[in-house]
Lab assay of single mutants.
Amino acid sequence: MASQGTKRSYEQMETDGERQNATEIRASVGKMIDGIGRFYIQMCTELKLSDYEGRLIQNSLTIERMVLSAFDERRNKYLEEHPSAGKDPKKTGGPIYKRVDRKWMRELVLYDKEEIRRIWRQANNGDDATAGLTHMMIWHSNLNDTTYQRTRALVRTGMDPRMCSLMQGSTLPRRSGAAGAAVKGVGTMVMELIRMIKRGINDRNFWRGENGRKTRSAYERMCNILKGKFQTAAQRAMMDQVRESRNPGNAEIEDLIFLARSALILRGSVAHKSCLPACVYGPAVASGYDFEKEGYSLVGIDPFKLLQNSQVYSLIRPNENPAHKSQLVWMACNSAAFEDLRVLSFIRGTKVSPRGKLSTRGVQIASNENMDAMESSTLELRSRYWAIRTRSGGNTNQQRASAGQISVQPAFSVQRNLPFDKPTIMAAFTGNTEGRTSDMRAEIIRMMEGAKPEEMSFQGRGVFELSDERAANPIVPSFDMSNEGSYFFGDNAEEYDN
């Protein structure tokens, strides 16, 4: 993207840094990872977990959730003011799984939030270390993106479920800051804005008074975040219109849905970061690795190297396929839920299948599930090659597409044709070009129609051997075009429920 120079890199967003050079960025990201790792080690000690239990991804998720809940100030305040039966607002906890007599047992633990905050700050040299908290939120978000298709949420806001490739980060909490905003897809931002506008339509006082002023500035800020994701002048001009509207209503909703559809071809720039579970960072720190000293990046080879040398386990339900569970977590670790499966298959070195073909449910185990038949197995999170994460949407291309997802959002900077089903997408653009945004709409449609099938995206960008740390010898991959490109292809993934 041309304006790259004016933006802070995501590592800076990730670490609240002012302008830093590459070495400083690597050190501050490393410091953040160190903090998460030290916190995780301490929690495993508190909970008396064995090494194996500490490497269980379900335990990692519970521990991450506990610290996120302990620092969720708004919710904590709300819980104190609106006490609900049987919930102690000062405590947080969740299921911890232990191996007892050759069987997995679930144990519900409860801790004072104050105590968890103390352990977290102690692991982070006394700081609140917001960057580390956001990092864990993005890992949870990436896992949700890989596990669930947001059909219901899309339909509720009037969008087409086939636009799911635009929904990265749709389950990120509001408090995820600049680093969170960077990884949100165009569809996620559109959905947040539509929800806001709908509230304004239904509630006369939404934009009024002292609160209304705050609401208005939040609305304009979200519009600017979305505008910054678009790469064409016409899309940005249309966002200006939406932002400046005196009284946002149905016309703005129409414009936003139009823009979301246009992003299936004229893709937005959305950041991709490899955020790993805390149970990967903990053992690495415990083994003596100093992330701050060595430096770390979320968008280069580092996460690949770390996963190459990590042992992570997962509980497996009786009829689940461990290899499929591994694929789910591998995609989440690489922030690749909406990437082209052919690119992923090449990088991973084994075939990556669409969601609907995987015999696996989510990673988390519900409290009512029976533990008797639970097994555990090693997650295979290694890769054959590594590639640089991208934040450009890439230019655009036609490809055989599917009944489910009709476009992709690249996660890796790797040369390819970008699949999208042009006739299906263009069919949504018939007729409606009147109104105050008509010239911009016409211009956007013209650009979409001009998108050429034979153009290559990320020209000359390749993948790298894991021994090639400096990215000196790019390998331009070859793809098996007979395979499906979309992950949520004609899909039956479970729906995400809060």
Rank of each mutant, 00 (worst) to 15 (best):
M1H: 10
S9H: 07
D16I: 08
G17C: 00
A27H: 00
G30L: 13
K31G: 02
M32P: 07
I36S: 07
F39W: 02
Q42C: 08
T45Q: 02
T45K: 09
L47H: 14
S60E: 07
D72Y: 04
N76R: 02
K77M: 09
K87W: 12
G93Y: 12
R102F: 01
K103N: 02
E107Y: 07
E115G: 09
R118I: 01
I119A: 04
D128A: 00
H135R: 09
I138Q: 07
L143A: 09
T147N: 10
Y148S: 01
R156I: 06
P161W: 08
P161A: 15
R162L: 12
L166I: 00
T171P: 03
T171Q: 14
R175I: 13
S176M: 11
G177R: 12
A179N: 08
A182L: 01
T188Q: 07
N211P: 14
G212T: 15
R213H: 09
T215I: 12
R221I: 05
Q231F: 12
Q231W: 09
T232P: 12
R236L: 09
R243I: 03
N247M: 04
N250D: 13
I253R: 12
L256S: 06
S262H: 13
V270S: 12
C275T: 07
A278Q: 09
A278T: 08
Y289W: 09
Y289F: 04
G295A: 01
S297A: 07
L306I: 15
L307W: 08
I316N: 08
P318K: 00
N319F: 15
P322R: 01
H324Q: 02
S326L: 11
G356N: 05
G362Y: 11
I365P: 06
A366I: 07
D372P: 14
A373H: 03
A373M: 07
A373I: 06
E375Y: 10
A387E: 13
Q399K: 15
R400P: 13
A401H: 12
I406M: 07
V408A: 14
P419S: 12
P419L: 08
F420M: 15
T433F: 14
T433I: 13
D439G: 14
E449P: 08
P453W: 06
Q459P: 02
L466A: 01
D468L: 08
N473K: 02
V476Y: 12
F479R: 00
S486P: 13
